[in-house]
Each structure stands twice: as structure tokens, then as C-alpha cells.
Measured scan of single mutants.
Amino acid sequence: KLLSSIEQACDICRLKKLKCSKEKPKCAKCLKNNWECRYSPKTKRSPLTRAHLTEVESRLERLE
């Protein structure tokens, strides 16, 4: 599967780190437990900047 097509777990399953069936409108866990089942939009991760990478590398060197 391509990364862009990976389905996201519902908010509660993601928060509780449960295996989500990803069914809509309610996944199996939410249906069974009568929880409100919501699927928040995916958040875009910002790409690493060179400055951040350099900072992490220098912190790693100090720890070694």
C-alpha cells in the first residue's frame, strides 16, 4: 500500500492505542462500548529543516 492511502484509526482508538477496525460511521470498538466515534483530519507533519537536523546532530555528539 502507498503511504498516502493508509487509513487512520478513529480518535479514541488512537488515543487509547487500540486496534481500530476503521469502519465508518462507527468502528467496532466504539460501537461495542457506545463511545462517540470521530475521525479527525490527518495532520500534516512539517518537513525537517536543516537547522533542526544540525541541532539534533550536535546534541547527539555531546551525549556520545
Rank of each mutant, 00 (worst) to 15 (best):
P25Y: 02
A28H: 13
E7A: 07
A9I: 08
L15M: 12
L53G: 00
S5A: 10
P25E: 04
E61G: 13
P47M: 06
L3M: 12
H52Y: 14
L18N: 08
T54P: 08
L60I: 09
E55N: 11
R14S: 07
K22Y: 08
Q8T: 07
K32W: 07
C37T: 02
K42S: 08
C20S: 05
K29N: 05
C37K: 00
T43S: 09
N34Q: 14
K26V: 10
R45A: 03
Q8S: 11
A51H: 10
A28V: 14
L2S: 13
E23Q: 15
L53H: 00
T49G: 00
K44M: 15
I12N: 07
C30Q: 01
S58P: 03
S21F: 02
E57P: 06
R62Y: 04
R14P: 06
A9H: 06
E23H: 14
A51N: 14
E57W: 07
C37L: 00
Y39T: 06
L15A: 11
K1G: 15
K26S: 13
L18M: 15
W35D: 10
R59S: 06
E36T: 14
C10N: 07
R50H: 00
S46L: 01
D11T: 02
Q8P: 07
E55V: 09
W35S: 13
C10G: 02
C10D: 01
N33H: 11
E7D: 11
E61M: 13
E23W: 06
A9V: 10
K16H: 04
L2P: 14
H52W: 11
L2Q: 14
S40N: 03
E61V: 15
L31F: 15
A9F: 01
P47V: 06
E36V: 15
S40P: 03
L3F: 13
S46P: 10
R45N: 00
E36K: 11
H52I: 04
K16R: 04
L2F: 08
R14T: 07
R62A: 15
K16F: 07
K17N: 07
K32H: 11
E57M: 02
S5T: 08
L53Y: 00
E23C: 14
C13K: 02
K26C: 14
L48T: 06
L15S: 11
A9D: 01
K17L: 05
Q8D: 05
N33F: 09
I12P: 11
R50Y: 08
T49W: 06
